Simulated assay, not measured.
Amino acid sequence: MLLAATTLVAPAPAAGQPTTVAGLLAHYYDLSKEAERVNEELLIFQETLAGQQRTSEAAKVAADEAKETAGRARRRAATVPNLDRMAEVLARRRGMDALSAFAASESPGDLLARLEGAALATQLTGSGGEDDVALAEAEQAARAAETAERAAEQAEKKVAKGAEEVRRRQGDLDRQISEVRGALDNLTPEQRSLLATMDDFGGEVVIPGGGVGGMLEFAVAQMGKPYLWGAVGPDSYDCSGLVQTAFASAGVRMPRVSRQQAQVGQRVARANVRAGDLIFYYEPVHHVAIAVDGQRAVHAPSFGESVKLSGIDAIGPITVIRRVIAS
């Protein structure tokens, strides 16, 4: 690979940095790949946090509704007549059904009064029990909703804390990469030309027809645009952002991060790679490229670089290859 032959002395390396161009470049690639992995981790955290925030909001709404329901049940229970006090008044009529009312009545008016009394007794004795059950159920639901709300808030805080920790790691990697990149930018013209000739995978790209063609044409047209963590275009991209946007141009919806994208489509053997296939790298997956033919792929490489063509096998260790668009 290109690192092995590049043994020129690196210009004024910072403390702890390699002293050869090969070592400096290898260190740069290592840092960039680690940063890319951390970036994908941050994106996953951000997606999880957004989902947890939606869950927390739904739990809050549910808790508020449950509390209001319990409040209405309490107010209704407070207005129910005291059945103990009513018992003495309704002693003669409680339990009296229509048949006994008819038998005991002395006149049509008396019969009507007795029937109304029986109905009233049934209504009062029944409604008290129902309200007690409703109140107990409402209060239990309110307590459960409050517990769910607290759990959702705690989960949201935990995810947010994890995301903040990943951001700190990302910032530290940014600093280290900037230092190494600064050293690489100070390479002599001779050193630059040596590195350039050893990583040349340019040349014409033949765009196939069908949905693959439109997607690939879009991806190739982004060449030269800078890599930027978290970017999905139109002016810059990270690796999975380029894939997501390119496939969207062909009407295909893809997940945001490469680890999720690696679960989409049909698995393809390395020997059967064709234009439009997705090549995923490293374990766990944290880089992706789009094949333009059986040997090259277009991708957003890493910090400080631009979207370009690279050799499929030169990008890194392949984890899996997927075909999302069949033709």
Rank of each mutant, 00 (worst) to 15 (best):
A5H: 11
A10P: 07
P11Q: 12
A15K: 13
G16E: 13
T19S: 08
G23D: 06
L24H: 01
A26G: 10
S32R: 03
V38Y: 00
N39T: 04
E40F: 00
Q46P: 02
T48G: 03
L49V: 05
G51L: 10
Q52V: 02
S56G: 08
A59S: 15
A62C: 07
A62L: 05
E68N: 10
A70T: 02
P81C: 15
N82A: 15
D84H: 15
R85V: 11
E88L: 15
L90C: 09
R93K: 12
L99W: 12
A101Q: 03
A103P: 01
D110A: 10
L111T: 06
E116D: 12
E116A: 11
A118T: 11
T122F: 08
S127T: 05
G128K: 07
G129A: 15
D131L: 08
D132T: 10
A134H: 08
A134T: 14
L135K: 08
A136G: 13
A136M: 08
A138L: 04
A142S: 07
A144R: 12
T147P: 01
T147A: 07
A148R: 14
R150S: 10
A151W: 03
A151T: 15
E153T: 14
Q154A: 15
Q154C: 09
E156T: 07
K161M: 05
K161L: 13
A163M: 04
E165D: 08
E165L: 12
G171F: 05
D172E: 09
L173D: 03
V180D: 04
D185V: 11
N186W: 06
T188M: 14
E190V: 15
Q191Y: 13
R192S: 14
R192G: 13
A196R: 15
T197I: 15
M198E: 08
D200P: 03
G203D: 11
E204H: 07
V205E: 11
I207C: 13
I207K: 02
P208N: 13
P208L: 11
G209P: 11
F218R: 09
A219Y: 01
Y227E: 03
W229R: 00
V232G: 09
P234L: 11
S236T: 13
Y237V: 02
D238V: 05
S240V: 02
S240A: 05
V243G: 01
A246R: 06
A248H: 06
M254S: 02
V257W: 00
Q260G: 00
A262L: 00
Q263V: 03
V264E: 04
G265C: 11
Q266D: 12
Q266M: 09
N272Q: 07
V273A: 04
V273L: 09
R274V: 06
G276S: 06
L278N: 00
L278M: 12
I279E: 02
F280P: 00
Y281Q: 04
Y282W: 14
H287G: 01
I290T: 03
A291L: 04
V292L: 14
A297I: 06
A297W: 01
A297C: 06
V298L: 04
V298N: 02
A300D: 02
S302D: 09
G304H: 08
K308F: 07
L309Y: 07
I312G: 01
D313P: 08
A314L: 14
I315P: 00
P317G: 14
T319L: 02
R323C: 06
A326Q: 13
S327Y: 10
S327K: 15
